[in-house]
Design a binder for these strands. Structure first.
Lengths: 257, 257
DNA sequence: TGCGACTCCTTACGCCGTAAAGTAACCTTG
DNA sequence: CAAGGTTACTTTACGGCGTAAGGAGTCGCA
């Protein structure tokens, strides 16, 4: 429910993200934990329980109390930023341009999509205020490097980068939340959908007449992967179709700049 | 932090959304509140405080306790669904196709964008499991009605509808969170950005060499509206540029189906 | 050997959503 | 008109959360 955006001390946050720690000899007991260990544990917990993971849960996974984490990390906001940047580290940062920009962008989009699916909580980290970690930079740099090869000016590229980013995020969000919701309640997508739509038809029998165009949208469905649940199937189909249209638009911009 | 998605009794949720209440004569004291009044108050609170509004705050605004709300609404999840659908009611549902589909889609996108900016918390309501309220249907119906006029088959349209939706949401989210974050900490966007980037340059002086393509993206900036804060300005520019590319793609699909 | 820095713990505070139970208002029935 | 059941709303309480404050034990260095 809370929008997560780093709000604490900027210096502390940035130094943590870039691991700019002066590793001097220091007195006191040897640290039993490390920022990396905490971030790893937190990601594990978040992968299982979603963004509503708690500091207590992370501490418990490490055999410590919640308060022990505050020795390494200023607070939950900053921890989330660190988790975000670590997740971005999983995405490749170099793409072969041998076959042109389009296959490269497509691969980038798929890699991002996969990362979002492995770590759905990433989609709930604020985008407006970039986390400004090294791997977030690297990921955007990778997309920028591909698109700069089109020769388009920066002015055009910014909109395109934004559009591709928004699209991949949005498409991934649809699946991620379908899974998260299903997992939280133990209800499969189909069950959820069925229960709702059954009541809906009962309450509003004229649904198709009131919204005829939505019905047109439903025509012509073909299964993408029969293994996947209903909503997920939908999202994969939309992802492919939408990305194609989006890249067609980019192609148009490249052709006539 | 919690992903909001209606999880309670499907019947109760749907009936509330469609206001399918049997208004019979009933014993007991007269209701001092109503679902509508509660939704209105909750939207006011959420517009000010973001999605982290509390039931207690909503109750207080109505001169009641938090628990009083539970007479009208099963829980916070369901209240959020109702708020979402009420917000969607602000978006126009009919667009003139006299000049073709493209200006109409552009207007739809701008109207959605405006709605998201009035009610940033809407962007945090789960999209995977649609709320299934009447106004959410109407909004999607409006976009579908415009796009069906292109003559494209449902298969193609689904991806396009998704892409447009994701794009508008994503672009709006960028601004919304910039504002929310600024409001929460009392920091203006510029201040936040300045504090961070100053430390960043200090910690990583070779930033431009490490990520040269990002630098290309920054070239060629022109002010859109000098009244708007920095990040918001950015987002508006990206919105316009991205939407253009996206619709170019749709145009390509229409030309050669 | 002792001091100060350090890790980690316990406790506690003020939030949150909401379950449970009580009180007062009102309509229906006798 | 009185009794009883239904409803609106309150108070209280529970278990969660993030994290502030302070204390206990551990280590490097003087």
């Amino acid at each position: 429910m809370v929008v997560y955006a780093g709000q604490g001390d900027p210096r502390r946050s940035i130094e943590l993200l870039w691991r700019a720690s002066a590793a001097e000899k220091r007195p006191g007991p040897k640290p039993g934990l490390s920022v990396d260990a905490i971030v790893d544990a937190a990601i594990e917990v978040a992968d299982e329980q979603g963004m509503a993971f708690s500091m207590r849960a992370v501490g418990e996974r490490l055999g410590r109390t919640a308060m022990a984490l505050y020795t390494y990390v200023p607070g939950k906001n900053e921890l989330v930023d660190l988790m975000y940047d670590r997740a971005m580290a999983e995405v490749p940062t170099s793409y072969d341009l041998g076959e042109g920009w389009r296959p490269a962008v497509t691969r980038w989009a798929h890699d991002m999509w996969e990362c979002y699916r492995r770590h759905p909580w990433v989609l709930q980290v604020s985008q407006a205020r970039p986390v400004l970690g090294p791997h977030e930079f690297a990921v955007t740099e990778a997309l920028a490097a591909i698109l700069v090869s089109t020769g388009l000016p920066g002015r055009r590229l910014r909109g395109i980068v934004g559009a591709i980013n928004y699209f991949v995020r949005g498409a991934a969000q649809t699946v991620a939340e379908a899974r998260a919701a299903g997992g939280a309640t133990g209800q499969a997508d189909e069950e959820w959908w069925y229960a709702r739509s059954a009541v809906l038809i009962e309450v509003e029998p004229d649904l198709e007449k009131k919204f005829p165009m939505l019905h047109v949208l439903e025509q012509d469905r073909e299964p993408v992967d029969p293994e996947l649940p209903y909503l997920e199937n939908d999202a994969v189909e939309n992802f492919r179709g939408g990305l194609k249209v989006l890249l067609d638009g980019v192609e148009g911009a490249v052709a006539k700049p």
